[in-house]
Design a protein around this nucleic acid. Sequence first.
DNA 1: GCGAATTTTTAGGCGCACCTAAAAGTGCCA
DNA 2: TGGCACTTTTAGGTGCGCCTAAAAATTCGC
Lengths: 240, 240
Amino acid sequence: MSIPEPVARRTQPNADSAAEDYLKTIYHHTEWQSAPVTPSVLAATMGVAPSSVTEMAKKLSAAGLVNYEPYKPLTLTAEGTARARGVIRRHRLIETWLVDEMGYDWHEVHDEAEVLEHSISDRLLDAIDSRLGHPTRDPHGDPIPSADGSVESSPALLLSQAAIGTSGMVVRISDRDPSLLLSLAAAGIRPSTTLSVVSRDASTGFIVRVAGATESDADGGPLVPVSASGGSSIWISAPA
Amino acid sequence: MSIPEPVARRTQPNADSAAEDYLKTIYHHTEWQSAPVTPSVLAATMGVAPSSVTEMAKKLSAAGLVNYEPYKPLTLTAEGTARARGVIRRHRLIETWLVDEMGYDWHEVHDEAEVLEHSISDRLLDAIDSRLGHPTRDPHGDPIPSADGSVESSPALLLSQAAIGTSGMVVRISDRDPSLLLSLAAAGIRPSTTLSVVSRDASTGFIVRVAGATESDADGGPLVPVSASGGSSIWISAPA
DNA sequence: GCGAATTTTTAGGCGCACCTAAAAGTGCCA
DNA sequence: TGGCACTTTTAGGTGCGCCTAAAAATTCGC
């Protein structure tokens, strides 16, 4: 018979980083807004062909990590959610570590974390977590899931959905576009910055007033233009 | 024609960690003793089938990294040597970092480094190197190649090849067998320990006298048995 | 110096994660 | 409500790094 059993294949490389990437991406789609994740959206986000998504969906479904039925959106099972949070915890702790200890700037950390999140051991992750004092937010303001899988969620509002006049503190800024992070940082916008919406236009972009860290003059800060894409990358929270 | 060209395959994962492992392993075989590396030896060391070695040898040869001629031992080209040193530099810096900063013990670092050496960026490696103050030796006493590729080599003698009565300082201990490292550490043997050969027997093992760090009584230290395999993992240098 | 033992290479396959192209299913709307 | 556009799945294929089995080359012992 030429059907040798699996033998002792070296599962060496890194667990199943591809699978982890799918779980992570599915999770991301429901983290800040709850849109159902269709295969085509997932494919576009991950930069793979739709057929690749179908394949992996079946695999993950068989593994009990995603709920998959043909022609329907994908959702994570409880176990899949836990696994996704684990990956995200790794990612965000690594980003935090790179910024806090290794001299990286916040817009430079994403790619490095993307790779390391799949190769660092639990042991090392714990060591990093301890060293940093168990942080709960990464440099972009994203919550870091705790080791037990719980996530502290603070209700937030996408800048692009805030009415003119709304003001609040920047809670998070998506880390997907490094160049956006760079320009925002240059304009003085980062997590914990307070800003208010001066004008908004879905196609042109937005203009916001940035309050200095010392916000003595609450509405006297500089006016800053924010692109349309920036508007859908910045979350603010209404002040207490 | 059903021969579409390579397309834009995502070379994502991690460069070519398999190739790097071959280069590293070939290099290792010539680092402390100069034995020609035959495919079978390489296969055994790496835990792969001999045919896999042949295949990779061809690939690396085509890439100009190894000199390969059928039925002959493998050697590294200048470029292959440089690449191998690069990987080894990564490995050893990571090991040093894990021990110096992350609370690892020296026998625990090998596996973690084995994975990370393929995923850390040059940028991060440099940051680690700086943080550690550009170390030249890793926790096992192995020299860390410098960024420019040069290696500080100190002539050393394998314990198993030292005559009875020889004494010297431990220069390095191979990191291949974690349990050996553990037992040696327990016996007080690590790099920079001074010891002398009391008896040797290729099959049974060795007995060495370990001088305390304060070596006031140069030959009054405890007697310690070292297994045969330990004898071929410990390198000592004659005292100045 | 020659045949046997060992090493190495060749030949053919496998699983993985991806792809393209074609087929099938869904859903909107005139 | 029937079409048609769009989405999703199926079918078939690729490169990579690995494997086993069989063929070929080398080396060793007598």
